[in-house]
Design a protein around this nucleic acid. Structure first.
Lengths: 211, 211
DNA sequence: CACATAACTCAACACGCGTTGAGTTAGAGT
DNA sequence: ACTCTAACTCAACGCGTGTTGAGTTATGTG
């Protein structure tokens, strides 16, 4: 859970303390393969439909090895859902700038995050698909919306800024769900500019009612 | 699949045609119990997490009897998702009337449909929860949005009325999902009037951009 | 080299699932 | 009374699942 950078390569203070011996964690290629395969599967099929055996097959390893790296399916899922910082920055910058185009910037940032490069969109997709059936994912999505999106409007003056941000966020999640997960034809066939043109005024009306 | 009213209680033309003999379908109490139990389970837990055995237990019958009435889990699910006509009428009437309060009426109709009496809201909830993992439900939700919501704006003049209706529908579905399924605190704690006040202008901006 | 430990393999487990089929019970028609 | 058939029960099936544990291989460190 959460968004720890963790696996940085610098060995840092290595020589000190307990003189551990034996084989060192290798090139981590397997662990990485598993993560990638799991990310793709979870994003495409959701938590329940994704099986450890299939992920292992995709990654070209044994199923029990998945269990050795990540201790359970739950933990694998949690590891997958770590949201890449690059996706978060989009939102941070989207809320900066003049109010008159706030809606448009936010809509664009949302679409870009969900429909951009797989590395960024897959954790979000996995989270979204999993949120219905898995408590971990539901909590993560709650957290994502509350912390990453709602708090972005904290500095605004209006008393109900939180509610407005929550409304905008959930509605945009609905838009992305309809377009990319359910596949509502009218939405899926429209191109990005049409969607921005239609949705931006709505988000604008929520986030900057005075304008 | 689809939305047949089907199980209406009037026996209608009973005496005619093939003189069938043998035991008549009883009071249908079991069949009804199964449907109710399934509706509640599917709405609360989604398609995959709901098991036939559990539904049967809830209804106080044997699991294999569920299979006798409805031929498979899929068909049970399809039967559950028949949207009650009363829920549909809300949407039909919401789109009638002066444009200046269109947004508010539609938002109210949506919230009422999803948060009203279990009989009406449970099929919608089941559809929503199932849509992620079950093709039948995804198709039903697509169909619901396309046919029931988008076509309501067919008579409007603007060329992109379909897209506007699709945007509004999916965003409202997102709102309901965030509030009632994911349980985003800010949304879940807000009362209906606050949500209407915040969301209505947005929907208004989408559906009646000229106003 | 020798050892400790990570990486990896293989076979099996207990479980719950949807589904089936054979058999029993009960009630409406003749 | 007899029959037909729906309603219902019971036991079992095959399957795929997440997970475990014992055993093997490889590799960095002393």
């Amino acid at each position: 859970m959460s968004t720890q950078p963790s696996k940085q390569s610098q060995p840092s203070p290595r020589r000190a303390q307990p003189p551990r011996r034996g084989r060192r964690p290798g090139q981590e290629s397997s662990r990485q393969s598993i993560l990638e395969a799991a990310r793709a599967r979870f994003a495409a099929e959701g938590f329940t439909a994704t099986t450890i055996r299939r992920v292992a097959a995709d990654a070209g390893v044994d199923a029990s090895q998945v269990m050795q790296f990540f201790r359970s399916k739950e933990e694998l899922f949690a590891a997958v859902m770590a949201i890449p910082p690059s996706a978060l920055e989009r939102f941070a910058t989207a809320f900066e700038g003049p109010d008159e185009h706030l809606g448009e910037r936010v809509v664009r940032a949302f679409l870009a995050a969900w429909e951009g490069a797989p590395n960024e969109s897959e954790p979000l997709m996995a989270m979204l698909r999993g949120a219905i059936v898995n408590d971990t994912a539901a909590a993560a999505l709650r957290d994502f919306i509350e912390a990453r999106l709602i708090d972005k409007t904290r500095d605004r003056a209006e008393p109900d800024a939180r509610l407005r941000a929550a409304l905008a966020s959930s509605m945009l999640v609905g838009l992305v769900t309809g377009r990319d997960i359910i596949g509502v034809p009218t939405l899926a066939e429209a191109d990005v500019e049409e969607i921005v043109a239609g949705a931006a005024p709505a988000i604008q009306a929520i986030l900057a009612p005075a304008t």
